[in-house]
Every structure is written in structure tokens, then in C-alpha cells.
Nucleic acid binder design. Structure first.
Length: 859
RNA sequence: GCCGGGAUGGCGGAAUUGGUAGACGCAAUAGACUCAAAAUCUAUCGAUCGCAAGGUCAUGAGGGUUCGAGUCCCUCUUCCGGCACCA
């Protein structure tokens, strides 16, 4: 065997093509559920295959997870590393309309492009497990899960979803008097008798208030000119500040439409609690927590003088009840309508409500914080704590959709109430912090304290006491609302429900799933606000639901399908699910924190409730990545002309260089600008590694410095990959290669160990080098090298000598030397002596192998 | 406004978690090779004083704790992200 391998030029194109072909032929990335190895499920967020293809930013996360997956494989894990396509959704539909091509066709073509682009970069995906959410074989199960949600309710006593049949049995037995369930806010109490005599439609309406997928109404953005509903993304503001469609610039208004909802709020508590055990970056958890927005407060009733109706307010500060000086109702509040006839300034109030309605949400929110409102003359609310009469206002700073839409105002302790009270000259009464509940303790003089600041009583105990005192109820509320689960669009999963002529709804039976999306000639809006499916005769005749599911339906469970993608009888088989359990490492963008990441957790918990899967949480570890911006520090987009196509990079400098560069460019979770200039450094690095082949000899022992650094690097690179610090991993390998370059000879073992730890980052070049050293087995199947703990540290230690904490010089001593020895050595040093001179040493601070600090100045 | 994360050379960024600030890479400068250029190699590369040895100042600003602070504490400035009249 030749001791030196003749080095040729590093031809990345040839090498990358060659090994991609061989890996594919040998199916090295194919995974199965067999064997005794521990498992590791490494997942990327699957892309939406757009018409513009991948840009250089997309692979950043894919590269990081691929490096991780490769390391795990080499460390002996059975790795599941799949990739697929999130193919339903609005962008595909828009692309299709713009290009006059059927979305299915467009998606097919785009997927081909994506696959080609991804393949060029050399990812270690098991493509045999790929999924496409718009494939009927896939969305059959999306529909199946929807039906499961539809036929479930949430039992709050056992904190679990259950079949709706259980609920019906309870209704039959005892009505809903004692039920503790997640339900719509308008659910009323009824008895078993009432249930028995109720008609089918009544029963349906009642059940709808409990189902986890339910029908309801919501406001949408409606564009009369285009005859279609628009997503928020499709709307911009024109020069006059009016809301208009992004395409065409047509006016947009609000319209109430029939929708389907998912009762995600049922899971609010579990979605918060579940975060504790997840290894996610804290700020992502924080975003989810904020979004869910749990707050504990009290429902308290104020009676209205001389009337039957009650004003039911929600407050988190029941302890300030004695400071209430007025009550506010939201303009949309039903109670306002009921009270209007008795209001003496009725005209004024009606005008105010009309004005508010004409404002857009944005106007209302951004209206420079100036509070507006109008008093309901002739109406007085009675504070249940002290039976004081207070005025009632209608004001738009109270939102109809949070809490009860009615608020007790305590200007002394709430900034907004304070601003309002100042403007309308309402008294401001401070509540004195005190111990027991007695009127005296709470009633103070009418002077202002710093808004909102009220120590002492702001605790649950006080709130409980006073809430009980006024016969209120301590309740938990959430900001999060139920998710609208319907789109008036063509390109989505059909909702598998049938509307019968009598108004009842029947689910499509399981054996008839998938309910396939019909092939229509026109998938453009039909002008009524309904989905294009409403224009398909056979569809409507059969009574099928014309709304389709939103883009996030398919992505809410795809991680489960990868475990068992070809299962025809279940969305995931028991065996596969028990084996893979959950995603161990999930990588993707932080922008999905309140969307996909929340919905997926919700669906996963729901399926878990039924024992259909074994894990409550889908993603154990989640690493969020920062975006790659264009070299001009703007988002890469056609509009700015700053898009870099990975295909070009791969062609010019190679996939390995791209992989190294994207790993090296900066911390993974930070946004960073692309720099083609900087990339050259990564290419140079690989070329130097390539050239090192010439220095390799068979029988040679490396010097201590090389051996130490090699061992340290093996350790560091392994640890850095695990913690997603690829940038420092690459830098440490550069340091090693720099040292190896200085050597005249390198041992074969050292070089090949280096190649092994480099291979997750640059698999092609490493496989080629490995091959050139006449290894028969493929490098991708090799084990990760072990470092020798005895060879991590030098036998000598460099000690920093400080005088008064200031660096003065370094000395070299045997490793692990004790203080006395180091002291003695240090005091021999000229530099040290010079600084100490005749001054007395007050104190010596010594840290083994690191530092000795002489403190001489007296304090 | 509230919550979360940042701010380090000309640039991207390191820093053993309180212990030599600026690793590694890019750019730049000089030199070698070349007829020349590119590529490659070698050296320099925070500011400042000094012939040098070496010193002083430097991690957004200002205070503090400590033998010692980029790292911990307080105040402020500023940038990015999330939520936003949430009662």
C-alpha cells in the first residue's frame, strides 16, 4: 500500500455527484424500527413548496439538523430524519391563479424543484418516508383527526378529551347541570327532561357548544370587488389609511361568515404546563405563554338600579372593588342594546356606537391612546361591596371579546381607568391596603396613587376573600381564542361533513375517507364569499361542507406520519409510535411560536388523550433558527433582488463549502446577513484539508501538541454539534487543520479521525478522502471517534500572573502544580519581581492551572 | 406600555460561564512566487505612548460589588422580536 496518496485537485462537482449517487444506491439513510440501538428523531420543519424555489436561507436549519443527525448516527443512534412538503394553503392557490395553472400541477412541479435542490446539498434524509399534505393518502388522516375532534368534548374533571357519546349519556341522565366541560360561553343549563324533549336540531346546537370542532360565526375580511375573503396577509393599507386588498387595491370590509372552529382553549392550561418539561429556548416558551395569556380573576355582578339585568364584570383586582367609581361596557356588548330604551341620551350613545363600528381594528387600537366614551344617562350600577351607585359608560377601550366585555373601573389603580376618569371628571378613590375585609379598611380618601401600584392586597388570598364577600366567583380566563378552522378557499383539505336538508350535520363515514378534493375547472373565487367548492354542483348536491381546512391542518400532525408513512389503516401504527415516541430534535423558524408549534402541541395532546399515541408532547427539544438575510441586510426576496440561489453556490464552490459556511457564519439562532465574500474562507479551509492528504504517512506518531489538540477537537466538535454551536465547531477544526499544516508529517489515524469529525459538515469531500485511503466501508457508516481523556490536557500549564488583578506575565509550570510551587516559580520571574518591588504581599489568589494573583496595594 | 433577546476591531463573530478580551474567518497592508495577474504561501493587523523592553486605555453610557467584570447588581441609551386599551 502506498503511504502517500497522490493528491489531485479538489473537484467538488465530481466528488459530490459521485457520492450522492452511491449513498442513494446503497440506501444508507433508510431507517427502520428494528435493532437495539437507541433512537433519535431529528426533524426539520417541512417547507411549503413555493414557485420560487429554495434560497440560500432555507437550508440553514436543514444543514444544522443534518449535521446533528449525522453525528447521532455515528454515535450509534437509529436516526429518523425525514423530509416532506406542506403543500396545501393559500400561497399555492395564489400562485395557481396568477399563473393559470392548477394548484395540484403547480405543487407537483414545485416539489420536483425542491427535491432537486435539496438533493444537491447532500442531506441525509430518508426519502422513502416523505409526505405531502395534499396527497389524498395523507389528508385522509387529517380528515380522520378532524372527525375525531368533531366527535369529542373536553371533560375538565379528568382533563381529557372524550367521545361525544359519553356526554350525550350524561345529558340523558342529568342534563348539563353538573358538567365541568370546555364549552362555548353561551351554553345554557338544561335538565335531562329538557334534553329528552329537545329536537334533533336543538340537540345538535347544544352539542356544538361542547364539540372540540364546532360550527360558529366569525368576522372575516371581505372584498366585494374580488368577491372573496382575504387573509390578513393579503391586505394592506392605502394612502388614505383605508384597508385594501394587496392585489388590486380594492376596499375591504368586515363580514360575518359561517366557520368551523377548533376548541384549542380547552387545552389552554395543559399547553402552558406542558412547556415546563420541554427543552426550548425560553423566549419561545414565553411567546406561547403570553399568547395563551392565562389570568386568574373574579366574575362579579353589579346590579342595575331599578332593573333586572346585571352587569357581570371580570376583574383580576377584586381587591380594589371599594375603589370602583364607574362601570364600562364595550360598545358591542349585548347589554347595551337592552339598556338603550331606558337611556335618556340615547341618540348620543347610538352615534358613539356607530362611530366605533366604522373604525377599523387598527384605528381603534392605534388611536393615540386617547380614551373616548359616553355615559349612559339614567343608568346606575350598584357596587356590591358598598352598595354605592356609580355611573355606567360605554367606551371602546373595553373589548367585547375579552372577559365579559364589561369592566369595573378603578381609576386609582388602573392607568386606563385613570386616564378615562381624568378626561370625564369622574371621582378617583384610592383603596387603602389593609388586612381584613371591612368596609372601612377599603374605603379611602379620593386621592390618586401611582396607577396600578397597590401592594399588600394584590394577592390571591385577598381576591378570594372579597370575591366571596360579594358572592362573586374566582375564574380563570385566557387571551387565546378558539382557532378558526375553515377557509373559503379551494386548495385545502375538504372538511368531511355533510349538511342534510333538515339542517342536521352528518360526518362522512370513516370508510369513505378520504373525501377527495374535486377536480374543478375553476378554482378562482366565485364571488359569494364561499369557497369555490360551493360552485361545484355535485359537491353541493351531496351536501358536502364547502369550507376547506386552513393551511396549518396538515402540518399539525405530520411529525407523526413520518413514523409510519405508509400505514393504510392508521395515521400511525402502534408499533412505530411506541418506537419513535416523539421528536427528539426539532429545528425551525421562531415565527411559528404561536401558530404551528401551538397547534401541533394541541393536536398531539388530543390524540394522546385517546391513547392513540404514547407521548403528550410532540417536540422534546426545539431549536429555533435565525433567518439569513441578503447581503444588504434585508429579507431575501425577489423584490430586493438580493436572493442567492443555493444551486449556484453548489455549482461554484460545492455543497460542502455551502454547508461549512452556513454552519460557520454565526450563532444558529441569530439573524445574519449573507456574505459571498466570507464564504471563500470555508472553501479555502476544505482545500487545505484536501491538501493535507500529502502529509499523511502510515507509520508515524504525532507529537504531543497534535495529539492533544486532536483529542480536544474531537471532544469539542461533538459537544458543539449537540448544542447547535456549529460555528465554534468549525472554528476549532480550522485551528486543528492549521496545526496539522505546520507539521511535516501526519499520522494516518490522526488525519482520518479529523476527517470523521469533519464529515457531518462536509460529507462528500470526507467520503472521497476516506475512500482514497482505501477504506472499504463507507465513511457515513463509521463510528464517531473516541477521544482519550488522558490526552486532553497538557503536562504543562500556562499560569497567568496578575498583580492586583492586572495581567503582568505568564509562567509555565507542570500541570496541577500547587500554590506553593507556583508562587515560588512566579516570584523568580523578573517581571513579577519588578512589579512587586519592596511592597508587602497582602493576599495571594490562586486557581489551579490558571491564575495566580498577588495583591499588594493595601486597601 | 409590558414581556423576551441583544449591543465586543473595518466586517461576521470567539471568550473555559467571574480569571491573558478580540480565538476562527473575511477584508486590508507588506513580502515571496510570477513577465504580469489570479491562486497559494509568509508576516502584520483594537486605539494610544515608546527606539525598544514595556506601559496606558478599550467589550453601547454611567455607577456599584470583587483581588479580578464583556460576564454579576443598579440606572440609562439603543436595536431586534413577541404581545398590545387583556380589565
Amino acid at each position: 500500500m502506498k503511504s502517500k496518496t497522490k493528491s489531485t485537485e479538489y473537484n467538488h462537482q465530481k466528488i459530490e455527484k459521485k457520492w450522492q449517487k452511491i449513498w442513494k444506491l446503497m440506501r444508507v439513510y433508510k431507517t427502520s424500527e428494528k435493532g437495539k440501538k437507541p433512537k433519535c428523531y431529528v426533524l426539520d420543519m417541512f417547507p411549503y413548496p413555493s414557485g420560487t424555489g429554495l434560497h440560500v436561507g432555507h437550508p440553514r436549519g436543514y444543514i444544522a439538523s443534518d449535521v446533528y443527525a449525522r453525528l447521532k448516527r455515528m454515535k450509534g443512534f437509529n436516526v429518523l430524519h425525514p423530509m416532506g412538503y406542506d403543500a396545501f394553503g393559500l400561497p399555492a392557490e395564489q400562485y395557481a391563479i396568477a399563473h393559470k395553472i392548477h394548484p395540484r400541477k403547480a405543487v407537483e412541479e414545485n416539489i420536483k424543484t425542491y427535491r432537486k435542490q435539496l438533493d444537491l446539498i447532500g442531506f441525509s434524509y430518508d426519502w422513502s418516508r416523505s409526505v405531502n399534505t395534499s396527497d389524498p393518502g395523507y389528508y385522509k388522516w387529517t380528515q380522520w383527526i378532524f372527525l375525531k375532534l368533531y366527535s369529542s368534548w373536553y371533560n375538565k374533571i379528568i382533563e381529557k378529551a372524550e367521545p361525544i357519546e359519553n356526554l350525550i349519556k350524561i345529558f340523558e341522565k342529568e342534563g348539563n347541570e353538573n358538567i365541568n366541560a370546555a364549552c362555548s360561553s353561551d351554553a345554557r343549563k338544561f335538565t335531562a327532561e329538557e334534553w329528552k324533549i329537545a329536537g334533533n336540531l336543538d340537540r345538535q346546537n347544544i352539542l356544538m357548544q361542547y364539540r372540540l370542532a364546532y360550527q360558529g360565526f366569525s368576522e372575516v375580511n371581505w372584498c366585494p370587488q374580488m368577491g372573496t375573503v382575504l387573509a390578513n396577509d393579503e391586505i394592506t393599507t392605502d394612502a388614505n389609511g383605508k384597508q385594501v386588498s394587496e392585489r388590486g387595491g380594492y376596499p375591504v370590509e368586515k363580514k360575518t361568515l359561517r366557520q368551523w372552529f377548533l376548541r384549542i382553549t380547552a387545552y389552554a392550561d395543559r399547553l402552558i404546563e406542558g412547556l415546563d418539561d420541554l427543552i426550548w429556548s425560553p423566549h419561545i416558551k414565553e411567546i406561547q405563554k403570553n399568547w395563551i395569556g392565562k389570568s386568574i380573576g373574579s366574575d362579579i355582578e353589579f346590579s342595575i338600579k331599578g332593573r333586572q339585568e346585571k352587569i357581570k364584570v371580570f376583574t383580576t383586582r377584586a381587591d380594589t372593588l371599594f375603589g370602583v367609581t364607574y362601570v364600562v361596557l364595550a360598545p358591542e356588548c349585548d347589554l347595551v342594546k337592552k339598556l338603550l330604551p331606558a337611556v335618556s341620551n340615547r341618540k348620543e350613545v347610538e352615534k358613539y356606537i356607530a362611530d366605533v363600528k366604522s373604525k377599523t381594528d387598527e384605528d381603534r387600537m392605534s388611536a393615540n391612546k386617547d380614551k373616548t366614551g359616553v355615559i349612559l344617562e339614567g343608568i346606575k350600577a350598584i357596587n356590591p361591596a358598598n352598595l354605592e351607585e356609580v355611573p355606567v359608560f360605554v367606551a371602546d377601550y373595553v373589548l367585547a371579546n375579552y372577559g365579559t366585555g364589561m369592566v369595573m373601573a378603578v381609576p386609582a389603580h388602573d392607568e386606563r381607568d385613570y386616564a378615562f376618569a381624568k378626561k370625564y371628571n369622574i371621582p378617583i378613590k384610592e383603596v387603602i391596603s389593609g388586612g381584613d375585609i371591612s368596609k372601612e379598611a377599603y374605603i379611602g380618601e379620593g386621592k390618586l396613587v401611582n396607577s396600578g401600584k397597590f401592594d399588600g392586597m394584590n394577592n390571591l388570598e385577598a381576591i378570594r376573600k372579597i370575591t366571596a364577600f360579594v358572592f362573586g366567583k374566582v375564574v380563570t380566563r385566557y387571551k387565546m381564542r378558539d382557532a378558526v378552522f375553515a377557509r373559503q378557499r379551494y386548495w385545502g383539505e375538504p372538511i368531511p361533513l355533510i349538511h342534510n336538508a333538515d339542517g342536521t350535520i352528518t360526518p362522512v363515514s370513516e370508510k369513505n375517507l378520504p373525501l377527495k378534493l374535486p377536480n374543478v375547472s375553476s378554482y378562482e373565487p366565485i364571488g359569494t364569499g364561499e369557497s369555490p367548492l360551493a360552485g361545484v354542483k355535485e359537491w353541493v348536491e351531496k351536501g358536502y361542507e364547502t369550507n376547506t381546512m386552513p393551511g396549518w391542518a396538515g402540518s399539525s400532525w405530520y411529525f407523526l406520519r413520518y413514523m409510519d408513512p405508509h400505514n393504510k389503516t392508521k395515521f400511525v401504527g402502534e408499533k412505530a409510535d411506541k418506537y419513535w415516541k416523539q421528536v427528539d430534535m426539532y429545528v425551525g423558524g421562531a415565527e411559528h411560536a404561536t401558530g404551528h408549534l401551538l397547534y401541533s402541541r394541541f393536536w398531539n395532546k388530543f390524540l394522546f388523550d385517546y391513547g392513540l399515541i404514547v407521548e403528550d408532547e410532540p417536540f422534546k427539544t426545539y431549536k429555533n433558527l435565525g433567518m439569513i438575510l441578503g447581503s444588504d441586510s434585508r429579507k431575501m426576496s425577489k423584490r430586493w433582488g438580493n436572493v442567492i440561489n443555493p444551486d449556484d453556490v453548489v455549482k461554484n464552490v460545492g455543497a460542502d463549502t455551502l454547508r461549512i459556511y452556513e454552519s460557520f457564519m454565526g450563532p444558529f439562532d441569530q439573524e445574519i446577513s449573507w456574505s459571498t465574500d466570507s464564504m471563500i474562507g470555508s472553501r479555502r479551509f476544505l482545500e487545505r484539508v484536501w491538501k493535507l492528504q500529502e502529509k499523511v504517512v502510515n507509520k508515524y506518531s504525532d507529537n504531543e501538541e497534535v495529539i492533544l489538540l486532536l483529542n480536544q477537537t474531537i471532544k469539542k466538535v461533538g459537544e458543539d454539534i449537540e448544542s447547535f454551536s456549529a460555528n465554534t465547531a468549525v472554528s476549532s477544526m480550522m485551528i486543528l487543520s492549521n496545526l496539522l499544516e505546520q507539521q511535516e508529517k501526519i499520522s494516518r489515524k490522526t488525519y482520518l479521525d479529523f476527517i470523521k469529525i469533519l464529515s457531518p459538515f462536509a460529507p462528500h469531500i470526507c467520503e472521497e478522502i476516506w475512500f482514497r485511503f482505501r477504506n472499504r466501508k463507507l465513511l457515513v457508516l463509521e463510528k464517531w471517534p473516541k477521544y482519550d481523556t488522558a490526552k486532553l490536557y497538557s503536562s504543562k500549564a500556562k499560569i497567568v500572573v496578575q498583580i492586583n488583578g492586572k495581567f503582568r506575565t505568564t509562567i509555565e509550570v507542570p500541570a496541577d502544580s500547587l500554590q506553593d510551587a507556583v508562587e515560588e516559580e512566579a516570584l523568580k520571574n523578573e517581571q513579577v519581581v519588578k512589579w512587586i518591588l519592596v511592597q508587602k504581599i497582602n493576599k495571594i489568589i490562586f486557581i489551579k492551572n490558571r491564575i495566580i494573583n498577588f495583591v499588594i496595594a493595601s486597601q
